[in-house]
């Protein structure tokens, strides 16, 4: 299978979560969330109760993918930042380490300048974190380590049960 699956353990997840909480606070944002380039939500911070985060994640990834397609047509490698301005809320989307997408939703209590500044700092930390996750996964694969895998024992019956 091309590419590697993204596997995240408690420890790394907590670090990412902390980083997002920090950004949420420091950027004065409404909501911050992190999405896999394939549209899967990884983590979020802030008030997500009124937001359909799953759909938002998928559409954000689609947005980044489409923009990436445009970039390549123009001979650019990637457009790393997208910004949409609304009447009340604004959305700042940035690509981190070619792998994940950081989304910040904010209103007039913050500003684009502040968000950009804070996002830059968070990006650096997250890039490092994801590098660690990737190298850890590769190392484990090399060592043939299967840490308490939930899949080793999957049976046909388990799968059939999903479709009852």
């Amino acid at each position: 299978m091309a590419g590697t699956d993204l596997v995240m353990y408690e420890n790394e997840f907590q670090k990412i979560d902390e980083e997002l909480q920090k950004l949420h606070q420091q950027a004065n944002a409404n909501v911050v969330f992190l999405v896999d380039k394939n549209g899967q939500l990884i983590a979020s911070a802030g008030d997500t109760h009124n937001i359909d985060t799953t759909s938002l994640a998928s559409l954000t990834a689609g947005n980044i993918a489409a923009t990436g397609g445009i970039a390549r047509l123009l001979g650019e490698k990637e457009f790393t930042i997208l910004f949409h301005e609304g009447e009340k809320d604004n959305i700042h989307i940035s690509l981190i380490g070619q792998r994940v997408i950081l989304v910040v939703i904010f209103d007039q209590r913050s500003s684009l300048g502040l968000v950009r500044l804070r996002v830059k700092k968070t990006s650096e930390v997250l890039t490092k974190l994801f590098d660690e996750i990737t190298s850890k996964a590769e190392k484990e694969k090399l060592e043939g380590k299967v840490a308490e895998s939930p899949f080793a024992e999957i049976s046909d019956e388990d799968i059939d049960n999903l479709f009852r």
């Binding site: 993204l6 408690e10 549209g39 899967q40």
Partner: peptide, 15 residues
Amino acid sequence: MSFINYSSREINCKI
């Protein structure tokens, strides 16, 4: 490319 999250105990797959 599936996303396996041990923290929230979720597996995400794309079809």
